[in-house]
Amino acid sequence: MNEFLKKSEIKRLKNLTFLQRLYIPEILKGIRITLRQIFKPSFTIQYPEQKFIKPESFRGRPVLVEENGVERCVACGLCSRVCPALAIDVQSAETELEKERYPEIFEINMLRCIFCGFCEEVCPEEAIIMSSDYELSFTDYNSAIYGKDKLLVPIEKVQDRLDHLHRTR
């Protein structure tokens, strides 16, 4: 029993009507709603057989854009600096190409990444962008660290995202 309030002190916010106090009509109302939903088209997607249609702005795992066989990235380190989860590790080095710098090592720890898209937003070269790929699974810690081999994606495959960025920026 409540030791602080006496029963007479408990006030109901509003008094129920007789019908409501019977409960049965209310239960029937609920059943009616349920029955109505059964015959409506279903919301559930049968993943993984079925996949949902992603909106254009969907942020999947970050990838590096590969153009003419090399990464666009110049290893400026801004994505690494801005990443709130400290997921990105870049080691720059000199290249003979006109861009002078390139990432010798580029790693994203996908266990840390929170898919915020800050790296995409800060990149001065449009070199790192959010792909539509969200299906990630790892069996151990090291396989969750994606190196350049997993991150580089040819530009043709991510053209949609680049177009979206150009439209919305």
Partner: peptide, 9 residues
């Protein structure tokens, strides 16, 4: 030192 590290790192 060129390109070895960004100063803020």
């Amino acid at each position: 030192f060129r390109f070895k590290s960004r100063v803020w790192e």
